[in-house]
Design a protein around this nucleic acid. Structure first.
Lengths: 162, 162
DNA sequence: CCTATTATGTCAACAAAGCTGACATATATT
DNA sequence: AATATATGTCAGCTTTGTTGACATAATAGG
């Protein structure tokens, strides 16, 4: 618009980059809406959802494992995790090798709640996969993975390929 | 893991859906880090970034236009927008047809700052595009667009194809 | 065995960015 | 002239992140 067209290659590139950035923003904005609506009827928020998700996905994970994945401080996590434990959504068990650790697992109640949250996002993503087709999905994964910090990619790969 | 394998189709499907959900989470997490680091050295936050971005991208947009795109309340926007106007990053001009409106445009200072924020994300996305290749990029766009709320898709298309 | 380190928890204070509700002003619209 | 709309503003609240300081239990290294 404001920009006089430069070498048309660069111009296209700019458009394409803006497109990715904007789609990522809008998709993420809507992607978080469905679970947020459910959460709003409980005493929990998006932070609780993340904890439930990753504990459910990695049963027996430690507190510090969770901290690394979420990239938040232990004080932030503690508040959220404490509520989830208190309300019976997550159980803590002392580590077997290292008894300082608290191994985290979902209770049945926690599993059920996580499932209800997951289902909304699952439906949205399943629908999008169906509309876009398998090749598009492969591209979707590949670009997203490369957007992740390079040092983190192997950790992410390990997580998603589990 | 915990799950005994059901019909293998469904099992695969579950893995694929989890993968999309997790990649979206991790990619978004890192995607916002670079600008956040710059913002941390200023008095602004991620909310200011979004306003600067969309005003820069849609010069002359109105307050309510911005509200719809960001999906926040006018009180939330007001705080952030007010600071940006006060500090000389955004100018307001009365609408030409409807003088109740405030048309928003970046000042030179605002444009420069937005550029510095944009550049970090631009680099990250450009690198990811390069590594994944053009077909993957097309799939990336397609899946993301389909993750957006259906009623919003035409609005998003209009924005990204501008 | 003693010491240092590590994993976790906790208290306190603060900031960013969202929300609701109520009310004000200027301009358009009918 | 009355009503509706676009915007702004005040006040208070919530969620979720931050720092900094300190506590406890268990491990690890000498």
């Amino acid at each position: 618009m404001q920009r006089k067209l430069p070498q048309s290659n660069l111009y296209l590139r700019e458009e394409e980059l803006r497109r990715g950035i904007e789609l990522l923003y809008f998709a993420y904005r809507d992607f978080t809406r469905d679970p947020d609506e459910i959460l709003a009827t409980s005493n929990f928020g998006r932070a609780h959802h993340r904890v439930l998700y990753f504990v459910g996905r990695n049963p027996g994970t430690t507190v510090s494992g969770l901290l690394h994945q979420l990239r938040i401080t232990k004080q932030s996590l503690s508040r959220v995790l404490g509520q989830l434990v208190e309300d019976g959504y997550i159980d803590q068990r002392p580590g077997t090798e290292d008894r300082r650790q608290r191994l985290l697992i979902l209770t049945d109640k926690g599993e059920e709640f996580e499932k209800s949250l997951f289902e909304t996002q699952r439906n949205r993503v399943a629908e999008a996969y169906k509309k876009a087709g398998p090749e598009a999905v492969a591209g979707f994964w590949e670009v997203l993975l490369n957007i992740v910090d390079e040092q983190e990619r192997s950790a992410v790969l390990q997580q998603i390929e589990k």
